[in-house]
Design a protein around this nucleic acid. Structure first.
Lengths: 234, 234
DNA sequence: TAGTGGTCTAGACCACCCG
DNA sequence: GGGTGGTCTAGACCACTAT
């Protein structure tokens, strides 16, 4: 027989509020009571209510504005979160033994499309690396990468025979901004050979551009072996 | 000459801490001072420090555990957030006029792969809808969807001539869990015709499974027109 | 200009987990 | 067992913005 007087947690509040949204106690576009009123209703403080509502807003269920109040979003913004993994970890997480093969590594002047893509100065030098990441003996991902030498001078000497540019960069070079794109690529003969795919097979592809405080660092295209899919629950 | 004594904001703290991580004042795997100590250092309260560190942990930079303290993540978990858009909005956001064409809609017993995918009971009935979403007159997305009738009885009568199943479901059916996958599909002749692609072109594809508290609601494959890419900054 | 959320201070108790 | 983060209370001032 315990009649405990536990505190109400912000998690409880979240659940209750979400319940009232789902059962239309607070229908779409309606305005919730103020934080102060809710705090009274649940015998708690504004701080607790605030955290609950803030997180729900962050999750896309509510829209909050000063003065106008907290409104139920008509169509909740469902959002997915993806981890951007390091290849090695992705391979080992899937239960494979990670291996790495360098295909080529050379210094050249940045091709025009890359200049445009990263907003480089004309004629800047880049190191171009192509390599393969394997899971056991199976190709897992083909990486085609360009590193801006002016931003990463160390990459001039580095040969990338031992470590993949992926890992090397993570270790050596800080970055502040990444742009990631996901797309599909049709396999030409080269890609097919590298990834053990057949010609014309559809290849899931990621592109990453990286900057350090506005300075372009690197651009990479990552081609995954056939059958790869990126999955998330929300 | 103002010598204001402003409060330190949790945003300031976040920035400072992130700075110290990036310039290796606090290198990878090192342990940060306790919240109490940091509060002293910045002449603020634990509450403020806590919020800053909590958010940084949430963003993947820190790892926090009771008793052991707050540790700098060796490889920050970079993560991307994607909105799961409603097709209509995605089209209009890209500046197109949204249009919708129903291709087919019929009731049948769930195919075996779908039974497995959604963990259905054997022999359950589903409504199978195929339709096309257009931007102006260009195909934008081909939708291939199955709705579990036992979970969504209203879908038995609905013809989906006017509204796409996408919008209809958002309006009518609540859901709690979604699983989203992204992959690449090779266009067969049908897909090529529908999307205005050529045979064998690589098609960016999304799969979504939806449940309401454990009960399967619907499964959809969404095929995007050639050239589509999903992009995010982080 | 007034109402609402945004955030900070100050202090407290507690849960988890490492040693 | 004890240290660290997790969270709550209580109260205050402020910033934004609708009216």
């Amino acid at each position: 027989m315990q009649h405990s007087k536990e505190n109400v947690s912000f998690r409880d509040i979240k659940e209750i509020v979400l319940g009232r949204i789902k059962d239309s106690t607070w229908p779409s576009d309606s305005i919730l009571p103020t934080e102060t009123d809710l705090a009274k209703e649940f015998s708690t403080t504004r701080t607790t209510i605030n955290r609950a509502l803030r997180e729900l807003a962050d999750e896309g269920y509510l829209d909050r504005k000063r003065k106008s109040g907290t409104r139920v979003r008509a169509a909740p913004i469902r959002q997915a979160r993806f981890k951007i993994p390091v290849v090695r970890e992705e391979v080992t997480e899937r239960g494979g033994a990670y291996r790495y093969n360098l295909i080529s590594s050379e210094i050249s002047s940045a091709p025009e499309w890359l200049v445009a893509k990263l907003d480089l100065k004309f004629g800047q030098n880049v190191r171009h690396i192509r390599c393969l990441h394997l899971s056991n003996t199976q190709p897992f991902q083909y990486e085609n990468r360009w590193i801006v030498l002016e931003s990463v001078p160390d990459a001039r000497e580095e040969t990338f025979t031992e470590f993949s540019p992926n890992e090397w960069l993570v270790q050596k070079v800080p970055f502040t901004d990444i742009e990631v794109s996901f797309l599909a690529t049709r396999a030409d003969q080269l890609l097919a050979d590298l990834l053990g795919a057949s010609l014309n097979e559809a290849i899931f592809t990621t592109e990453r551009s990286t900057w350090l405080k506005g300075t372009p660092v690197t651009f990479a295209r990552l081609y995954f072996a056939p059958g790869y899919r990126m999955t998330t629950r929300l």
